[in-house]
Computed example of a mutant assay.
Amino acid sequence: MTSKTPATSTDAPATPGVLLAGGLARRMGGGDKPMREIGGRTILARVIARLKPQCDGLILNANGDPARFASFGLPVVPDGVADFPGPLAGILAALDWAAANRPGVAWVLSAAADCPFLPRDLVARLHAARIAENAQLAVAASGGQSHPVIGLWSVDLREQLRHALVVEDIRKIDRWTARYRLATVEWPIAPLDPFFNANTMDDIAEAERLAALDGG
């Protein structure tokens, strides 16, 4: 079910956020997409600024040398399952991190680290839809398109996710979420799509234009 009901931030329980930065940016010539700059600020800095007020702490999921992200002051958590590239492995790493480091937390938000215009009511509306629909998971959507990498994940489902990755070789998020009661929350795309992500150099140019619409 797709929800369009707004919610206030007071409805959301304490929710850590994980920024998924595992992409190789092949369409940009390699490197870390979130480190590209838009309007003089890195995409990652913009994502952090959007999510920090909404989340009870942030972590970064990235593989390789974590020192390249040291200036952001976030814990860097690599994938814990070998040879499973993709966002589900990053989500599992975040759920494992939460279970080990934040035992009182029941939910983790995931977001792509290359989406510089994320909604300021993301966490609140996902939680509101999850509660209203008695859902086990919640994901964002815009323009009629689901964005399964941006969603709420139950820490209680982490062993089921591990089994899906390791034993069943499931890598597509929507293939896994189809097993559960899923709330989908729609955001408007005017004046801009809050889930715009920068995949190519042309996207970076478009992001510069959108940043002006978004107040820089």
Rank of each mutant, 00 (worst) to 15 (best):
C55H: 00
C55D: 01
D56I: 06
D56M: 12
G57S: 00
L58P: 06
I59W: 03
L60C: 07
L60N: 01
L60G: 08
N61R: 13
A62H: 09
A62N: 04
N63I: 12
N63R: 09
N63M: 12
N63L: 00
G64R: 08
G64F: 02
P66H: 05
A67H: 13
R68P: 09
F69Q: 00
F69V: 10
A70S: 13
S71K: 14
S71E: 15
F72S: 00
F72W: 04
G73K: 12
L74S: 01
P75W: 03
V76L: 07
V77C: 08
D79M: 15
F84T: 14
F84V: 15
P85L: 08
P85M: 06
P87Y: 13
L88G: 07
A89P: 00
A89H: 02
G90C: 00
G90L: 10
I91A: 02
I91Y: 03
L92W: 09
A93N: 09
A93T: 00
D96I: 15
W97H: 02
W97D: 05
A100Y: 11
N101K: 11
N101Y: 05
R102T: 01
W107E: 03
S110K: 07
A112T: 13
A112D: 15
C115Y: 10
F117M: 05
F117W: 10
F117K: 03
F117P: 06
D121P: 03
L122A: 10
A124R: 09
A124E: 02
A124D: 02
R125D: 07
H127P: 06
A128W: 05
A128F: 02
R130G: 06
R130H: 12
I131C: 14
I131Q: 14
E133G: 12
A135W: 05
A135E: 00
Q136G: 15
Q136T: 13
L137Q: 07
L137I: 04
A138V: 03
A140V: 01
A141I: 01
S142F: 00
S142A: 15
G143L: 07
G144P: 00
H147K: 13
P148D: 09
I150T: 14
G151S: 07
L152V: 04
L152K: 01
L152F: 10
V155S: 11
E159Q: 13
Q160Y: 14
L161Q: 08
R162H: 13
L165E: 09
V167K: 14
V167F: 08
V167S: 14
E168K: 12
D169S: 15
D169M: 11
I170M: 13
I170C: 08
D174H: 06
R175S: 14
R175D: 15
R175G: 13
T177A: 05
T177S: 05
R179M: 02
R181L: 03
A183C: 00
T184R: 09
V185D: 10
V185T: 08
E186M: 08
E186G: 02
W187R: 06
W187P: 02
P188H: 14
P188M: 08
